[in-house]
Amino acid sequence: MATSTPTPPTPTVDLSVDLAGLRLAGPMMTASGTCGYAWEYGDFVDLTKLGAFVTKSITLHPRKGNEAYRIVETRGGMLNAIGLANVGLEVFLKEKLPQLADMRSKGPRIIVNVAGHSVEDYVVTTQRIADEKAIDAIELNVSCPNVKDGLTFGTDPLLLRQLIKEVRASMRRDCKLIVKLSPNVGDITLTARAAVEGGADVLSMINTYTAMAIDIHKRKPRLANTTGGLSGPAVRPLAVYLVNRVYRAVARDANVPIIGMGGIQTWQDAAEFLLAGASALAVGTALFVDPATPIKIMDGLSSYLAQQKCASLREIVGTLKIDP
């Protein structure tokens, strides 16, 4: 570790982010499914310092989720097969929305993650949520690996484009549409392009990698669902690569910002994603270790950017130098 302490830089860096017209005070967000519906971490950390808050996936009807065991730790990460357990649209609107409106009034932008089984599911749910003024953006989860057929939309470019077109058309125009990409594809630029063509304002990536862990004594999968989604530090290099790939092949030219995530735990991790092409950053699994992780990362990023002689965070996005 480089630990000698010279004069601490006094950061006056502009950390604000422009997500296709949606202004965030800072780059840090929560990742869906790791931070509850609203204030769950409120007694640990000042959530109002987040650039945006992203809810657990909401589906049209409540879902109880998969059987136990739903999680298992693997080296440097974890597998989860929660199965989109959530309260459903109706309870969300009644109980969670007021809390989110309250949070929004204190600073963070509010993004609701939506999942579904059919185009109709998605359209009905998204339209209803996007009608709410307190909601700044919808993030479409088209890539949950833990439910039956959960991957079809996320892996088939044609289906994906069609889905996004219909969802976009049904939504309040000034509510942004974020499409969350699955890493479980052969060529991610195909789904990324389909999403942009369909009308995505922003791309977020990545969701978890489908994976498996085995109890060798029982000769059985460790998760009741057999497979789960891998997240945490173990996936970070894979995620950084995919962000950079999509940035260079699709997003930069289409002027579509990327929200980068996958194993972010430190400001160095965050900086990698920015250099690779992400405009904003989400922290998921690391919240389980310390809910204040995103806030702590912001301090480190300010110093880093000052040292890199950047007046704003925007300046560093996608500035990875690759030798010809």
Binding site: T34, C35, E40, K56, Y69, R70, I71, N80, T285, F288
Partner: peptide
């Protein structure tokens, strides 16, 4: 039960 967060967010 196996726990990831212990804080009521991960649903595990």
């Amino acid at each position: 039960q196996a726990m990831a967060c212990g804080m009521g967010t991960c649903q595990s």
